[in-house]
Amino acid sequence: MTLAKTAAPNTVASAGQTVTYFYVVTNTGNVTLDNVSAADLSFSGSGTPPVITCPATSLAPQASTTCTGDYTVTQADIDAGSIVNTATASGTQPSGAVTESNASTATVTATADSALTLAKTAAPDTVTSAGQTVTYSHAVTNTGNVTLTSVHVTEMSFSGSGTPPVITCGVTTLAPQESTMCTGDYTVIQADIDAGS
């Protein structure tokens, strides 16, 4: 017997998508096989492996059946970059001996699309004297489809004459669509008042 395994779709981009695996089992021998089934030998997905069902469990010589199983993609799968699934099929001969197929592998590629947005504000946005504290708030959002680690904010330019703010973030790991607020305080000095901004 032979097994040919495929997956549809073979490319995914977000958690929650459904992948359907197709297991085409063919009796290439000369005796009828009963108890025909397909089983996953290895599965790299982090979620619940697919439950495989076969429309026919008895195959005459040269007959085929297509077994199927659905899998729900997880965020860990997207982060990993792929889902690899290897399966085999088996059937029982009239003599009671078990016939096994070749192993067949289907790989689903997870397309990574990383992106971040930043929205920055200052409070207060007007100061009148040296010694006042300005708090800069940076709203960071992961707008991509992969988990991001080591999230941080870096000042590209700062016109203040005093010590630039030290920015700290509430969390440094963001799953897709998650946000964190990063803040830093600055103490106004007289040169800032003189400069006007």
Rank of each mutant, 00 (worst) to 15 (best):
Q75A: 04
N85L: 03
T20V: 07
I52W: 08
D77K: 15
I52M: 13
V12A: 02
T6M: 07
T68H: 09
S64A: 15
I189A: 09
A130P: 03
S95Y: 03
L59T: 03
T111S: 07
D192T: 00
I167T: 10
C54S: 12
A195R: 10
S37R: 15
C67K: 00
S14F: 10
F22E: 04
V171A: 15
T65F: 06
S37N: 06
A195P: 08
D125K: 15
A97L: 13
N27M: 08
V98L: 12
V25W: 00
G91A: 10
Y71N: 11
V166T: 14
N27G: 07
T135L: 09
T147V: 11
T183F: 08
T105E: 07
D70M: 09
C54W: 05
A7R: 06
V51K: 13
G184N: 03
A123G: 12
T74F: 13
T48E: 05
T128I: 05
I83V: 14
G196H: 11
G45H: 02
A139F: 07
E178N: 14
T149Y: 10
D113V: 00
D77M: 15
V153C: 12
F22S: 13
T172A: 13
T6K: 07
A4V: 04
T99S: 10
P9N: 11
Q132P: 06
S104A: 11
T183C: 01
S58W: 02
Y23T: 00
G69A: 14
V146A: 13
A191N: 01
G45M: 03
Y136F: 14
A63S: 13
Y23I: 02
V36P: 06
V51N: 10
M1S: 09
P165T: 03
M1D: 03
A4C: 00
H152I: 05
C54L: 08
T6I: 01
H138E: 01
V188I: 09
P50N: 00
A103P: 06
T154N: 13
V31I: 13
M156V: 13
P94T: 02
G170D: 11
L59M: 02
Q62W: 05
T172C: 12
I167D: 12
K120H: 02
T74N: 11
A139M: 12
L118S: 01
V166K: 07
V108L: 05
N27A: 07
P124S: 12
G184P: 06
Q62N: 10
G91C: 04
H152N: 14
P49G: 09
D77V: 08
P50Q: 04
Q75F: 05
T92M: 06
H138I: 00
N35E: 08
P176A: 15
Q190I: 02
T88R: 13
G184F: 06
V153D: 09
L148K: 07
H152F: 13
S58I: 09
T32R: 12
A89M: 06
G196D: 12
D125S: 15
A13E: 08
H152K: 15
V51H: 11
T163N: 13
G196T: 01
T11E: 15
T99Y: 01
I193R: 04
N145C: 14
A106P: 04
D79P: 04
N27R: 10
Q177N: 14
T11C: 10
Q177V: 08
A63P: 01
V51P: 00
T141F: 05
T126P: 02
G162C: 05
P165Q: 06
T147Y: 11
T180C: 15
T117A: 04
T48I: 06
